[in-house]
Every structure is written in C-alpha cells, then in structure tokens.
Simulated scan of single mutants.
Amino acid sequence: MTGFPLTWLYVPGDRPPVVAKALTSGADVVVVDLEDAVAPDRKAYARSATAELLCDPQPVPVHVRVNALSGPWARADLAAVAHAPGLSGLRLPKVSSPADVVRVARRTVSAHGGALPLYALLETALSIERAHAVATAHPSLRGIAIGEADLRADLGVRDDAGLDWSRSRVVVAARAAGLAPPAQSVHPDIRDLNGLAASCAHGRTLGFLGRAAIHPRQLPVIERAYLPTEEEIEQAETILKAAASDQSAQALPNGTFIDTAVVKAAQRTLSLTTRP
C-alpha cells in the first residue's frame, strides 16, 4: 500500500466468515467491529471470535473497534484482544477527552512489546471542540477521525454540508498534531457508488486521505477517488524535475509557480502512486 492506508473496511466481529472474506478483499486495513455492528446479545461471541482470529498474524493489518470506553463491554474487549499477535491497532469510539486515550494507552501493549497504535473516533460536539487535545494526548495515538452518524445526531444536522466545519477542524487538528490525514467516515448507502465518488471528491478537497467502507464494492471507488490522476502525476513529476535543477522559486512554462510548499505537495502526490 502507500505510506498511508486509503481503504479501511469495517466488518462485524460476530460474523467470522465475513471477516475472512474481508481479509482478501483488497482493503488496506480491515477493522473488526465489536461496537455498532454487533447486537448486545452477540457481544461476547464477537469478542471471543475476534480474539481467536487474532491469535495468528494476518495477511493485512487488522484493527479492532472496541465498544464505547464508558460502557460495560470495553474493559472485556481490551482484555481479550489488546495483546493478540494479529492485532495492528485499536479504534476507540466516542472518545470525549484526552484522558480516554491515556487510560487505554496505559493498559495496552502490543504482543511484540511496543506501544499499540490507537485511533480515536470523535463523535460528539465536545470531542470536536477537543480535537487537538485528543490528537496530542499520547504518543500511542496514531490517528483521529470523525464518527459522522453520531456527530450528525448530536448536532442535529440535517444537511451534509453542516458537517464541513467539523470535518475541517479535525483535519487541521490532525495536521497540527503531526498525525496522518484523517480518513473520511463511511458512506452508508452501499448501492450509491456515484454518491460515494462525489463525496470522496469533496472529502479530498477538505484534506482527508482515504475512507472507511462497509462493503467491498466501495473499495475501488474510494481508491480511485484518492489516488492521483495521470495529469496530477505528470504535473508533480514536472515540478520535482524543475526543482531538482533549480532550487530557487520559479515559474513553469504553464505558469505554475514553484516554491517549497508546492514541491512538498508534489512529493506527497507521487508518494500515493506506490501500491502493492
């Protein structure tokens, strides 16, 4: 994959055959969900099935979204999976403060002895207000993202554009904290691939990189939306070639002005072209 994952496929932890298929779906990261996708009476089974799966290394990075940290199931989730050899990261839902991240970080160590990568999901108005504080809460935190369904309900937002301010705030917070650009939240209609593509294009303009998915058919749409076009690649190569021969600020024949910021953007564009 690229230096940054572009596709994060959520699958319910209580459906092992679906999880097995997800591991060969082409997703950059598979997220086994113990939270919203699992009914209360299936929580224990989902937890044990996921722990069994993660006893062995997996062909792609596997993250687990545990249940809400303030609820009755999170402690058991963490105890079951946090030290598993096949686990690559934990996704923490409904994080409301830096203290939530710190508590989990202090209780989790990877099976290899190092810090277990943590990812915080911001799903309330309060968590959006605290986005930068959460993003800098602990060195184990590797990313933040928005849980848009819950945030939409909390804000009473009816139109999708009503979330754009919150989206931009999280993008800025991640950058300010030195974290990877956030991935977009899921597009809930798995049949609406045109709408997904349009939404991804909008997310890209806001500074997101990649997206969570809930069905394999969404993966190629997300990947196409976030990978650079041939024209963008050609432009980036032209910029880097010009910068290599003359490191001062300059203008290309097409009028594009080149400075350090433009060169960095071109380097990032080309970094996204390397796929497995």
Rank of each mutant, 00 (worst) to 15 (best):
A49M: 04
A49F: 10
T50E: 08
A51G: 08
A51E: 05
E52D: 15
E52A: 15
E52W: 04
L53Y: 08
C55A: 15
C55F: 02
C55H: 13
P57I: 10
P59H: 09
V60G: 03
V60A: 09
V60D: 10
V60I: 04
V60T: 00
P61G: 11
V62S: 03
H63V: 02
H63G: 03
R65F: 05
A68F: 07
L69W: 08
L69P: 00
S70G: 04
P72W: 09
W73C: 00
A74I: 04
A74Q: 06
A74S: 10
A74Y: 02
A76Y: 09
A76E: 10
A76Q: 09
A76S: 08
D77K: 01
L78D: 00
A80G: 08
A80N: 10
V81P: 07
A82S: 12
A82G: 08
H83C: 15
A84W: 07
A84L: 00
A84R: 13
A84G: 06
P85K: 05
G86R: 02
G86P: 05
S88F: 05
S88T: 11
G89Y: 02
L90Q: 00
R91M: 12
P93D: 08
P93K: 00
K94A: 00
K94N: 01
V95K: 01
S96D: 15
P98I: 07
P98W: 09
A99R: 13
D100S: 08
V101N: 07
V101H: 08
V102L: 07
V102K: 01
V102D: 06
V102T: 14
A105S: 04
A105D: 07
R106A: 13
T108I: 00
V109Q: 12
S110T: 13
S110R: 03
H112M: 13
G113M: 05
G113H: 09
G114Q: 12
G114Y: 12
G114A: 14
G114P: 01
L116N: 01
L116K: 00
P117R: 05
P117H: 03
Y119M: 05
A120T: 04
A120H: 02
A120E: 05
L121K: 03
L121A: 06
L121Y: 11
E123Y: 13
E123G: 07
T124W: 10
T124Y: 10
A125I: 14
A125Y: 11
A125S: 14
L126H: 15
L126E: 15
S127M: 00
S127F: 10
S127W: 05
R130Q: 15
A131F: 10
H132W: 14
A135S: 06
T136G: 06
T136F: 08
A137H: 02
H138P: 07
P139M: 08
S140C: 13
L141P: 08
R142Q: 15
A145C: 13
A145H: 05
A145T: 15
I146S: 04
I146L: 14
G147V: 02
G147Q: 04
E148R: 10
A149D: 10
D150Q: 12
L151E: 06
R152F: 09
A153I: 11
A153H: 11
A153F: 11
A153P: 06
A153Y: 09
D154Y: 10
D154R: 04
D154N: 14
L155D: 02
G156P: 06
G156M: 01
G156D: 01
V157M: 01
R158V: 15
R158Q: 14
R158N: 14
R158F: 12
D159R: 15
D160S: 15
D160M: 13
D160K: 11
